[in-house]
Amino acid sequence: MIKKVASVGLPVDEVLEIRKNRILPERHGGSGKRISIVTGIHGDELEGQYVCFELQRRLEGHRECLEGIVDIYPAVNPLGIDSITRGIPAFDLDMNRLFPGNIDGSMTEYVAARIIEDLAGSDCVLDIHASNIYLTEIPQIRINELHQDILVPLAEAANVDFIWVHGASTVLESTLAYSLNNIGTPTLVVEMGVGMRITQEYGNQLVDGIFHLMKKLGIWSGEAAPVRKPIISRNPEDVCYLNAGVSGLFVPVAEHGARLGRDALIGRIVDPLCGKVLDEVRAPEDGMLFTIREYPIVVEGSLMGRLLKKEVCGYE
């Protein structure tokens, strides 16, 4: 059942609509629980598009097992998705810095407020992101330390490889996830894959996790594949950031997700004009390369990867 969440007239012969698909159980009763899948806050992150499709495809096969409500919001920033724009076009605003919005505010604030209003009361919300066009991420859930007690048990059911509990930051108080968690609607932020692309393997992995999560919440009574045990990091020291020391072209050597020894070569920064290697990027510690640079041009400081230290990963 397609429902309108927000609607605003644009200046020239067009209406902006935020829509969701509400999938109800076939029979009356059920648990009355609700899970909401949200994606597309950043218009250049498309991994969640496949998840929305695949989740519905699998649900359709066994609708009799649905015991609660599934709300799917595939495009909360439709203008951004349509124009391959990360933020809200025309305003150059990051939509994920506008929440909780204001029902009496500007167009963007109003839309943000309507989205919050619609999602509030869900038993779980998944806000699916896809890193950005520069970096590829393994499937992971990021959690603000303020809400970890409620969210970590939910995240463990979602079949991701990594749960990253990060410190509180004032700037992040304007995000969808913070705003919802702040009003008691548990919200998990999923990061996986890369901007402007779909990684079906990761999408399928997350959909398995959503079914498992729904089962845990009493929304799904059918089969759910077992989930992997995620690595959980709560200490900022667990993660090494690899930033470019020079500007150039980054040519990776290591595979994404590789378990590397200290000093292993991750990639080279080269100068195509002079044909020279400007710098080598090496692992500062033993660990797993959970983030890797996808977009090859780097400027000094550009993030080229993140390494999760071996002792946290727990591998031999």
Binding site: V8, G9, L10, P11, V12, G105, S106, M107, Y110
Partner: peptide, 8 residues
């Protein structure tokens, strides 16, 4: 020259 609704 153009404006959106609900804009200050």
């Amino acid at each position: 020259p153009l404006t959106y609704a609900d804009t200050a």
